[in-house]
Amino acid sequence: MPDSFSTIVGTLRSAGCVFAEDEARLLTAAARTPGELTAMIGRRAAGLPLEHVIGWAEFRGLRMAVGPGVFVPRRRTEFLIEQAIGLVPPRAVVVDLCCGSGALGAALADARPGIELHAADIDPAAVRCALRNMPAGGRVYEGDLFDPLPTSLRGRVAVLLANVPYVPTGEVGLLPPEAREHEARVALDGGADGLEVLRRVTAEAPAWLAPGGHLLFEASRRQIPDAVEIVARDGLAPRVVTSEEWDACVVIGTQGPSRPGATGAAGS
């Protein structure tokens, strides 16, 4: 390797970057000038997430734009998308709630072209990134959970992706510095037990889901019993899918085949 590359690797390794060589390659490829490379190395060595430094994160083989303060999509969440792929009928209405960069909805649209995709987030910075990542025809809204969504979607959503924050408030300080210092608190903090935002989602989800529609979200292993109880209490049939390989736990809540007051269909 060139000396300059070795120097970059050494700088990153000294800063605690475990995958220093891989990161050095990405930084070198992303920089347009030597001066920009030096600045990027400095930001990374100072603790900024690599994805914020280079401006994108890889998610399910796609490059997703991410900016300062925006939640970086986790690779384990690809497992959630794998579950969703098999649940999406042709031309289905899909909502990506708490969408962050919009990575989940965009990845699902890539795997299932033709869906009608809507995404929403309360964080303006996240919404700006989601707009950049949204496939043609998709819509992004800014607001709290379901509030900004068009009411015409009620009773028509076939798949509701809800990547809600689920870190208990008292444990946010235990997260790696890259997350707790450089990602929006609203994308991490799930309240006292980590499930407060989830409760708000499940309370409203049945009114938005189509008959037979599905809500999908992640939780930690210790939260699964409580999460399942929450989903069932609000009228959805829960099941849990786990993966040791991805270190992921996904809860799927399914709407019954009919619902009082339901209108429309899963497809558009």
Rank of each mutant, 00 (worst) to 15 (best):
L50P: 02
L87P: 02
A15L: 12
A20Y: 02
F79D: 02
T33S: 14
L26Y: 08
V53M: 07
L48E: 13
L27I: 11
A65Q: 13
A46P: 00
R75Q: 06
T77D: 00
A57D: 06
A107F: 07
L12N: 13
V93D: 00
L62G: 01
A119G: 12
L48K: 11
G42N: 07
R43M: 08
P90W: 03
R60F: 05
L48I: 06
F71P: 01
A39E: 13
A65F: 05
Q83D: 00
L37K: 15
E23C: 11
L108Y: 10
I41F: 09
M40F: 09
A15K: 13
A24E: 14
E58T: 14
G61H: 00
E116Y: 09
V93N: 00
G35V: 08
R60V: 04
F79P: 02
G100W: 14
A103R: 03
E82V: 06
A24W: 08
F59D: 06
A111N: 06
F59M: 07
G55E: 08
C17Y: 03
I54M: 06
C17K: 15
T38M: 11
C99G: 05
V70C: 05
P68E: 12
A29G: 07
A57W: 07
P73R: 11
T38P: 05
A20H: 04
C99S: 15
P49M: 12
R112H: 11
E58V: 10
T33Q: 10
G55L: 07
G102M: 13
F71L: 09
E78M: 01
F71Y: 14
V94R: 05
R43Y: 02
A45Q: 09
G114M: 08
P90T: 09
E82F: 03
A45H: 03
D22M: 12
L27G: 13
R25V: 12
L80K: 00
I85C: 00
P113G: 06
A31N: 13
S101M: 07
E21R: 14
C99I: 12
H52P: 02
A45R: 05
S101G: 04
L108M: 03
G47E: 07
F59E: 08
R25F: 09
L87K: 04
F59A: 04
C17A: 14
L26K: 10
E116K: 02
G42H: 04
G69M: 15
I115Y: 08
G61T: 07
A119N: 10
A30S: 15
G55I: 03
G10S: 15
L12W: 03
G16T: 14
L48G: 01
E36T: 03
P113V: 00
R32G: 15
R91N: 05
A30I: 11
R13I: 15
I41N: 05
G61K: 00
V66I: 10
D22P: 05
R44A: 11
F79S: 01
